[in-house]
Simulated scan of single mutants.
Amino acid sequence: MTTILASTLSDTPVMGSDGTEIGTVHNITMNVETGELQRLLVTPTIDNVRRFDTNDDGKIIVPASCMSDIDDYLIVDLTRR
């Protein structure tokens, strides 16, 4: 995956590896000791979010291990879930 500043991820569109538009990046969680990205919170733009874990506010939780690439969209590899 390309190295980018975490601050540039806000409002980035998120797409599944199957081409489904999932939502936009709302927030990120990082390990403060290592700087490693742990997960994203995504504001959903799809109605059926049941295939994803969500928090109490309905944001989709995407583990860093599922992120596969970023360009115009942040791509989430749905087979890694």
Rank of each mutant, 00 (worst) to 15 (best):
I70Q: 08
T45P: 01
G23V: 10
T45Q: 08
N55T: 13
R51G: 11
N27L: 07
G35K: 04
V76T: 01
I75M: 11
D72L: 06
I70Y: 08
G58W: 10
T29V: 14
Q38T: 11
D56G: 07
D69L: 05
P44K: 01
I22R: 00
Q38N: 13
D77H: 07
P44M: 04
L41P: 02
L40W: 02
R50P: 00
G16R: 07
V62T: 11
M67W: 03
I75Y: 03
S68N: 12
S68P: 07
T24L: 03
L40V: 11
M67D: 04
S68W: 06
T24S: 04
E33F: 12
T29W: 05
D69T: 11
V32N: 12
L41E: 12
V32A: 13
I61K: 08
V32S: 13
Q38L: 15
I60A: 03
V32K: 10
R50M: 06
G58I: 14
I28N: 02
T29C: 07
M30V: 14
N48V: 03
T45D: 04
V76N: 00
L74C: 04
N48C: 02
R39S: 13
N55Y: 09
D72H: 05
T29I: 08
H26K: 12
M15Y: 02
E21G: 04
M67R: 03
H26M: 05
C66E: 13
M30Q: 09
I22M: 07
P63E: 10
T24N: 04
I46T: 10
N27E: 11
M30I: 14
N27G: 06
T34A: 08
I61G: 02
L37P: 03
A64L: 06
I70L: 14
G23I: 07
I46N: 00
I61Y: 06
N27H: 11
I60E: 01
G16T: 08
I60L: 07
L41K: 12
P44A: 03
S65H: 13
F52K: 01
I70G: 04
E21V: 09
E21Q: 09
R39D: 07
D71A: 08
T45C: 06
I46L: 14
